[in-house]
Nucleic acid binder design. Structure first.
Lengths: 182, 182
DNA sequence: GTCTATAGATAGATAGAC
DNA sequence: GTCTATCTATCTATAGAC
């Protein structure tokens, strides 16, 4: 059984990844899912309902991706975080959620879930490295990753990954009390 | 003499501040400037030309605002930076620039100017506090401020300013080698 | 229940009036 | 040079066909 609703949500995610929030239109999503816009509205009567469903899927995946990075080899965590900050497709989706949250109260609630989930996970990670870890440290790391991602998206520098790695390593060193340094 | 071009740019900034990038349409900007869309296109034939002019103005003002914050009383710098991260109108403009840069190469170039200008200023500020200050430190502070602003916009927490202040103070303490702490 | 034709609103750009 | 009527494309939503 082909779940059309799921297909549409996948299509919505694909559009956000490629074109960002401004490209998120019903005709485009419908075309990507292989149906007409007037058919899409049968499954999602309004644009907001579609956007909400897509946002929920995006949040689930973002948290799952972060879990995967943080449970990997300790040495690879910084590397994994860098990768998340330079995947422009992912950044486009996250920026779309942020903008949508700025406009729609219902999506703002979803975005808070996302932010809280990320901070909670980062806090747990920091605690596993360093006993003295406050919530400010986790929020710092979260905001830093967000900022790095946004700036990298907008500047698109060829050495973006290298730059972000350098900053993230500096931050992790400062946050954990200056451990490993070549 | 009323400079219509300047009026239009001001209107464009106002629209970005209130509605963000998605609200940036020629009819809306024209209405805000008190003229018709078809008249606006006389001064700015295409949407991109209008957006470019508005972006340049936004960048100039952002850098000027940062200069004002960084040249103020040393004790007030953290406070001033917090304010910049919780002014949603300002964040909407910056996010609009980031998205536009992601789509248009010409705007990407402008965004790099902005980012470089900010990092340069923050580097100078850090150097005035702490001799040992690398470019990574300045980029860290920049990305952190960007991330804090985006997250605050999307979550709109009542205690957003307090939260951002706590994180920024933590970061400044770590970056400058743990000085003033109550 | 599934799907489509169509309406109504708004976007961006151009030819041309004054 | 300044300004506007108008065209075309695209968006969201609804009524209704199968």
């Amino acid at each position: 059984m082909q779940d059309r609703r799921q297909d549409i949500i996948e299509a919505g995610l694909a559009i956000l990844r490629e074109h960002g929030y401004i490209g998120f239109t019903q005709p485009r999503v419908a075309a990507h899912a292989g149906l007409r816009q007037s058919h899409l509205t049968y499954y999602f009567p309004t644009r907001l309902e579609l956007l909400t469903a897509v946002a929920r899927a995006a949040i689930d995946r973002q948290l799952a991706a972060l879990d995967k990075v943080l449970t990997g080899a300790a040495k690879e965590v910084g590397n994994g975080m860098t990768k998340m900050t330079v995947q422009h497709a992912n950044t486009r989706v996250m920026m779309a959620l942020a903008q949508a949250a700025d406009q729609e109260l219902s999506l703002q609630k979803l975005f808070r879930e996302l932010a809280d989930g990320i901070v909670s996970r980062l806090g747990g990670y920091l605690k596993s490295l360093d006993a003295e870890s406050t919530e400010e440290h986790a929020r710092l790391l979260h905001a830093l990753a967000v900022g790095l991602a946004v700036v990298d998206l907008a500047t698109a520098r060829p050495d973006g990954a290298k730059r972000n790695t350098a900053v993230l390593e500096t931050a992790l060193r400062l946050l954990t009390g200056l451990p490993d340094k070549p």
